[in-house]
Design a protein around this nucleic acid. Structure first.
Lengths: 236, 236
DNA sequence: GTCTATAAACTGATAGAC
DNA sequence: GTCTATCAGTTTATAGAC
C-alpha cells in the first residue's frame, strides 16, 4: 500500500498543513461578505440554487438584502464565490498531496494511494477545516446537476488543471485498463462518491438505526478506497 | 452467468413485452394532458423543477396556462404525474424480470444476473419505449437531490416494494458481504449509475471525439454489470 | 458600507366567460 | 375543456438617502 516512512508526510498531515493555513486567512475577519457566504453555502447545499432566494440568504446571515449586490454583484457571482471559497483550499491541498505522493513513490503512485489521497483530502480536509464533507459533496453534485453553464465553465477554467493531473496519474497507475473503459469507470467513481456522500447523514443514521453501527471518518475512507479500486480494476 | 435456455425469456424479451404493452395504452390518444406531460418531462430533466415554470411548460406544449391546473391540480401533482408515467411501466417490467430470473434459476439469482436485469430494464426498456434513458436518469437524480419531500414520499409509497425486493435478492446473492458494507456499496452503485447515465450524451460525445469510439446500448450494459459487480464484491 | 424604498419582472393559481 | 384576465405573492436588482 506504500505506507510512507517516518520522514514523509502522510496525506492527513498535508491536509492539516494546507487547510489550517487557508482556514485562518479566510476566516480572520467575519464581515458581511463572509456572513453571506456562510449562509449561502449552507442554504444552497440544502435546497439548490433556484430554490434559495437572496432574501432567505440575507435574513439568515442577518444582513441587508442589498449587501449581496454590493459585495458580489449578482446571484450568479455569489454562487461562484461560494464555490471558490471551498474549492481553492481543497484543490491546493490535493495538488500538494499529489506532489508529495509522486515524490514519495519515485514518479508513479499506485491507484490505491492516489485514491487514498483524494478521499483523505476531500473528507479529512474538510472536517479538519471545521466544515461538513456532506455539504461539500452536495454542492459538487449541484454543480453537475443544476449547473447553469456559468458555474461549470468557472470550475473547469479555475480548477480543471489539478483534476486533469489526478486523472492522468490514476490512468498511469492502471495501464492494463483500456482508455474508454477507464473513462467510463472514472465517471462511475465520481458519481458514486458525490451521490453517497451527499446522503452521508441519512446513511449514517440508517446504519446506526438498523445495525447499531457508528460511522467514523476513517471507516468511510477505508470503505471507499477498496470499493473504488476494485471497480476501476474490474475485468470482464 | 446463467444464460437462459431457449425456452426461457431473456431480459430483453421481457422488456419488449412489458414496455410495448404499456407504451401503446399510454400513448394511444395525444390530448392536452399528454402534451403537458411530454413537455414537462423534457424540461424538468433539463433544468430541474424550480427552474421550470408552468408558463414554459405550457408554451412548449402549445396549450393554455390554465390547462395545468385543470388537468393536474398543481405543479406538485404534475411532477408526480411525470414520475408516475415513466416509473410505473419501468417498475412493472423490473418486477416481471425478477420473477422470471428467480423462476429460471430456481429461487436464487446470481448478482451478475440481477444486475443485468436491472440495467437491461432501465436502459433497454426505455429505449424500446422510444424514450431517452438519460432523461430517465436525470429525473431520478433530481428526485434524490431536489426532492421537495412530496416526491420522495410518493415514490417510496408507490414503488418501494419492488426495489426492496431487488435489494433483498441482491443481498442473498452476496452472502459473504457484511450488511453494513453491502448497504454502503448499494448507495455507491446507485450513485454511479444515476450520475453516469445522467451525463450519458456528454460521455458518448467525448468518447467519440477523443477515441473515435461509438457507444451502443449493449456496450454500456456490458460495461456497467462487471464494474458494479466487482465493486459490490470488493475485499479489503 | 449599510440602509430604505421601489422598480420591473416573474411565479403559481383561479375566477368566470365561452 | 379551453380560453382571457387577473390576483397575490415572490423574485432579482437598483437608486438614492444616510
Amino acid at each position: 500500500m506504500g505506507r510512507p516512512s517516518r520522514f514523509v508526510l502522510t496525506s492527513g498531515q498535508i491536509v492539516n498543513i494546507c487547510f489550517n493555513r487557508g482556514f485562518k486567512t479566510a476566516m480572520s475577519h467575519s464581515d458581511t461578505a463572509d456572513r453571506i457566504l456562510d449562509a449561502a453555502e449552507i442554504l444552497f447545499a440544502e435546497r439548490g440554487f433556484a430554490e434559495t432566494s437572496l432574501r432567505t440568504i440575507t435574513s439568515t446571515a442577518g444582513v441587508n438584502l442589498a449587501a449581496v449586490n454590493y459585495h458580489f454583484g449578482s446571484k450568479k457571482e455569489l454562487i461562484q464565490a461560494v464555490f471558490e471559497r471551498f474549492l481553492t483550499p481543497f484543490t491546493d491541498c490535493l495538488e500538494t498531496a499529489l506532489t508529495q505522493r509522486i515524490a514519495d513513490e519515485g514518479g508513479a503512485a499506485s491507484a490505491d494511494d492516489l485514491l487514498e489521497s483524494l478521499y483523505t483530502v476531500s473528507l479529512g480536509g474538510l472536517k479538519a477545516q471545521g466544515r461538513d464533507p456532506q455539504r461539500f459533496m452536495r454542492l459538487l453534485g449541484l454543480a453537475y446537476s443544476q449547473s447553469q453553464g456559468h458555474l461549470r465553465r468557472f470550475i473547469v477554467a479555475r480548477y480543471g488543471q489539478t483534476y486533469r493531473r489526478f486523472i492522468d496519474l490514476l490512468k498511469q497507475a492502471l495501464p492494463e485498463i483500456d482508455p474508454v473503459t477507464f473513462y467510463w469507470r472514472l465517471y462511475f467513481m465520481l458519481g458514486a462518491t458525490i451521490f453517497t456522500l451527499s446522503s452521508f447523514d441519512a446513511i449514517e443514521a440508517i446504519l446506526k438505526e438498523d445495525f447499531g453501527a457508528e460511522t467514523t471518518l476513517q471507516d468511510t475512507i477505508d470503505r471507499f478506497v477498496p470499493s473504488a479500486s476494485a471497480m476501476l480494476r474490474a475485468t470482464g
